[in-house]
Simulated scan of single mutants.
Amino acid sequence: MSTATLTDTLLSLTVAERVALADRLYASVPEDWQQTVDRAWMEEATQRSEEMDADPSLELSHEDFLAGLKINRGRA
C-alpha cells in the first residue's frame, strides 16, 4: 500500500479513531526520542548562529523570512 493510499485511508477514520491511533503511535515512540530531537535542533541552531556571527549578511529580517515562506509554500 502506498503512503498516499494509507494516508487517505487513515484520514477517512472518524476523529475519535484518529485520536486513538495518534495516541497509540505516540506511545510507541521511544522515551529518549525527544531528547535526541532536541539535541539535533540545538546543534542546528548553534551552527546557524555561528554562521551568522561569521557572516552577518546571512541574517534575514523577520519580514524577509516570512516572505520566503510565502514564496516557497507549496513547493514541498
Rank of each mutant, 00 (worst) to 15 (best):
F65H: 09
T7G: 12
Q34H: 10
Y26D: 06
S57E: 07
D38Y: 08
A54H: 04
S28N: 06
S2W: 03
V29S: 08
E44A: 14
G74Y: 02
F65S: 06
S57H: 06
S28M: 03
A54P: 03
G74K: 05
S12T: 07
A4W: 07
R24I: 00
S12C: 11
S12D: 13
Q47N: 15
M52T: 02
A54Q: 09
G68S: 06
L13C: 09
A20E: 03
R73P: 01
R39H: 14
K70C: 02
M52C: 11
A76V: 14
L11Q: 14
E44R: 13
R39C: 07
D8V: 11
M42Y: 08
D53P: 05
T9K: 15
L21A: 09
T14D: 03
D38N: 14
L69V: 03
D55R: 10
Q35W: 02
A16K: 10
M1A: 14
S57R: 07
D64A: 10
S12H: 11
E59M: 08
A27R: 09
I71N: 09
L10N: 09
E51F: 07
P30G: 04
D23Q: 05
T46I: 12
L10S: 11
L10Y: 09
W33D: 09
T46L: 14
V29N: 10
A45F: 13
Q35V: 01
E63K: 00
V19S: 11
A27D: 06
V37S: 09
L25T: 04
H62K: 05
E44M: 12
V37F: 14
M52V: 08
D23W: 01
A20Q: 07
L58Q: 08
L60V: 01
E63I: 00
L60I: 00
V37C: 11
E31I: 07
W33A: 10
L6H: 04
E17D: 10
R73D: 06
W33N: 10
R24W: 00
A20L: 02
A45C: 13
V37I: 15
R18W: 04
A22P: 02
A76Y: 12
R75L: 14
L10A: 11
E59S: 04
L66D: 00
A22Y: 01
T46A: 13
F65V: 05
L11E: 12
W41T: 15
E50G: 07
D53H: 10
T14N: 04
A22R: 07
I71Y: 08
A67E: 04
A27Y: 02
A54M: 04
S49V: 10
G68M: 06
A76I: 14
E31C: 02
L58S: 01
A54R: 11
M1E: 12
A20P: 03
D23S: 03
L25C: 06
R73M: 08
Q35K: 12
A67V: 03
A22W: 01
M52K: 15
H62I: 00
R75D: 12
K70D: 06
F65Y: 13
A76R: 09
L6Y: 01
H62T: 02
S2D: 07
R24A: 07
I71A: 14
S61M: 04
D64L: 03
T3P: 00
D64S: 06
L13I: 00
S49K: 06
R48K: 14
